[in-house]
C-alpha cells in the first residue's frame, strides 16, 4: 500500500545565481492524504495545475515533499528512496524517456540493467513486454525510426521492466491512437488483477470511469472529493437529462410532464413533433414514461443521459456560484 499523509509541496521562488528574482513560492500540493492499495486502479483527478504531476513525482522519488510523509509498503520515499525505486515505476505520456539511438530491445535491456533485473529473466521479460505493447516486429529497429505512438508504447514497456509493485501513470494515453489506448487500458486492468497497485491520472475521464474503483479529486493541491466514480457523480447531485419526443401534440401530456417537478424545456423537432427535455437530480425516465402513456401520449423517442464523471469533476472544480 502507498500511503501519503498530509502531503505538502511548495516550490521555492525562482532564483538567479546571485539574487532572488522576486518571485513567490508556489504551493502545488496542500495537505493531501491518499491510499493506493495493491491490486486496484486508483484515480487522481483534477484540472490542470491541480498538483497531480507533482504528487506522482513525489511518490516516484523524483521530488521531495516539503512536509508530510509517503510510505510504499512501509518504506519511506525520502529515507529509503533506493528501495522504493525498485518497487515502483512511472510512465508519463508523450514519447520521452527512451533513447532514439538505441533499438526498442536495447532500450529495455539498458533500463533492465539499471534496475538490476535478474539476468536469467531479463531477456524473457523484454520479449514479453515487446509483445505486450505490440512492438515485437520493431524490436530491433532504432527508436529514431519509430512513430510517436511506437515510442510511447516503448516508454510504457520501459515502465514495466522492473515488474513494479506499484505503477504510477501520468496521462499515459496522451496522444495515443484510440485502438492502442484501448489496449493499454486492458493491460492496466490486467496488471491490477494480477496485484499491481496503479495510480492513474488522465484527461480522458471515460478512461478513469472505466478503470478506477476509487478516485481522488484534487483542486489547487487540495483534496475536494473521493469515492467510486458512481458515488462521486451521485454526490454532486448533477441533473440527469431525459429527452422525449412524441408522435403528436397532446395537452394532457404537457400537464403530466409538468407535474413531475423537474425543469422542463419544450420544443419541436425537425419534423414538427413536440419534444420535452427534463433535467432533474434523479433519473425520471421511468416515471416520465408511465406518466406520458397514462396521459395518452405516443412516445417516438426516449433518451436518458445520466451525468458523467466529467460533469462531476467540472462541477467540483468550478468555484461555487455566489447566491
Amino acid at each position: 500500500m502507498i500511503v501519503t499523509r498530509e502531503l505538502r509541496k511548495t516550490y521555492p521562488a525562482k532564483r538567479t545565481l546571485f539574487r532572488r528574482s522576486g518571485g513567490t513560492e508556489t504551493r502545488a500540493v496542500d495537505g493531501l492524504s491518499l491510499s493506493i492499495p495493491p491490486g486496484a486502479v486508483t484515480g487522481l483527478l483534477g484540472l490542470n495545475g491541480a498538483g497531480k504531476t507533482t504528487t506522482i513525482k513525489i511518490i516516484a522519488t523524483l521530488l521531495h515533499p516539503t512536509t508530510g510523509t509517503i510510505t510504499v509498503d512501509g518504506l519511506d520515499v525520502v529515507r529509503d528512496a533506493r528501495a522504493v525505486r525498485r518497487r515502483i515505476n512511472l510512465i508519463a505520456g508523450g514519447e520521452r524517456m527512451v533513447y532514439a539511438r538505441l533499438t526498442g530491445r536495447e532500450n529495455l535491456w539498458y533500463f533492465g540493467q539499471l534496475y538490476d533485473v535478474p539476468r536469467a529473466t531479463l531477456r524473457a521479460r523484454i520479449d514479453e513486454l515487446l509483445e505486450l505493447v505490440g512492438l515485437p516486429d520493431a524490436a530491433d529497429t532504432l527508436v529514431e525510426r519509430y512513430s510517436r505512438g511506437m515510442r510511447q508504447r516503448l516508454s510504457i514497456a520501459r515502465g514495466l521492466i522492473n515488474q513494479p509493485a506499484y505503477l504510477l501513470l501520468d496521462e499515459p494515453t496522451l496522444g495515443l491512437d484510440a485502438p492502442i489506448a484501448r489496449d493499454l487500458r486492458a493491460v492496466v486492468a490486467r496488471l491490477a488483477q494480477e496485484g499491481v497497485g496503479v495510480l492513474l491520472t488522465s484527461h480522458y475521464l471515460a478512461e478513469v470511469e472505466e478503470l478506477c474503483g476509487h478516485v481522488y479529486v484534487i483542486d489547487r493541491g487540495r483534496l475536494v472529493a473521493e469515492g467510486s466514480p458512481t458515488a462521486l457523480t451521485a454526490g454532486t447531485r448533477l441533473p440527469h437529462t431525459v429527452e422525449l419526443t412524441l408522435a403528436e401534440a397532446a395537452p394532457a401530456v404537457s400537464v403530466a410532464v409538468g407535474a413531475l417537478g423537474a425543469e422542463v424545456e419544450t420544443g419541436l423537432d425537425a419534423e414538427g413533433r413536440p419534444t420535452y427535455v427534463l433535467r432533474s437530480p434523479d433519473d425520471l425516465a421511468g416515471e416520465l414514461a408511465t406518466a406520458v402513456v397514462r396521459a395518452g401520449g405516443a412516445i417516438v423517442r426516449l433518451e436518458v443521459n445520466p451525468p458523467t464523471l466529467e460533469d462531476a469533476i467540472l462541477a467540483m472544480a468550478a468555484p461555487a456560484p455566489v447566491s
Binding site: 523524483l62 512511472l90 520521452r96 524517456m97 533500463f111 539499471l114 534496475y115
Partner: peptide, 13 residues
C-alpha cells in the same frame, strides 16, 4: 532535455 535523465533518476542505479 530529452527526458531520459529523469528516467535514469527513477531507477535505483
Amino acid at each position: 532535455v530529452s527526458g531520459t535523465l529523469e528516467a535514469m533518476f527513477l531507477t535505483p542505479a
